[in-house]
Design a protein around this nucleic acid. Structure first.
Lengths: 129, 129
DNA sequence: TTGACAAATGCAACTAAGTTGCATATAATC
DNA sequence: GATTATATGCAACTTAGTTGCATTTGTCAA
């Protein structure tokens, strides 16, 4: 396992690089804008296929923030998101309990959890004042 | 507050009725199929607008199961979903800890949580054998 | 019980997100 | 440098959801 042949291509490394630099999850539109700003000629089909590839190989996470589209970020462990429904800024929050919950689910329900999605929606510090 | 004028219309009560009978969250396609089976003439625009209305008035929940579309269910408290990525069946699971987590977020991050989404993806009991 | 008016519906056309088929180009390995 | 599997690009398509506008329907007050 893990022995996937990962061909390195300009589009692919550019997208990975972009995802490594951004502080919050981005959508396809933002990725395409970045590629254009770098004068890399690409089209949306390649971007979608690249994101599928990176997602299926566990390199990126695919997220849903109640927007009717996906967002992507470099995969990191054990964190969730605070999404401000006013300014749309996204923050991370560390977590420790969800693993325990997943074990409970396995024990009590015989359901084998592969992954989960946990997002908190609300109003950030800034937008409260 | 809470004094929203809720006009009762055939489409609206039919959708609420349908959502009350189903055991798992449904998508718009399933709702339209139900309405057709009841010989209720309706169209998707009305369905979308009705769901918006029910969602905004806190009558239904709008959910995302990594499918690129929304699902809906009658709002109930303190539960999450177990989604089998093999057979696509959805189960509920009770919860008690998330409220505590939300309070922690408020205290530590000054982020005012309004709602959250927690879904577990994996393989159900049936599909494991 | 009817008339007025706000709110809901229906239709057509539209947008936005994501996908497919197929021909071409390119990266890795020899 | 040739081979070959894999990635890319283009055009056309699908699917989910939206908008404008004209029409209908609930609700409430007279």
């Amino acid at each position: 396992m893990g022995l996937i042949k990962i061909i390195n291509t300009p589009a692919r490394s550019a997208i990975r690089e972009f995802l490594s630099t951004v502080e919050s999850p981005v959508d396809v539109e933002q990725i395409i804008a970045f590629l254009r700003s770098r004068k890399l000629n690409t089209n949306k089909v390649t971007v979608y296929r690249t994101l599928d590839f990176l997602f299926k190989n566990g390199i990126v996470d695919r997220l849903e923030f109640q927007e009717g589209k996906f967002r992507y970020e470099i995969k990191k462990m054990d964190h969730h998101h605070l999404i401000c429904t006013n300014c749309r800024r996204v923050g991370d929050i560390a977590d420790s309990f969800i693993k325990k919950f997943e074990e409970e689910i396995k024990k009590k329900r015989s359901f084998l959890v592969k992954n989960h999605a946990l997002e908190f929606f609300g109003i950030c510090k800034n937008c409260q004042s």
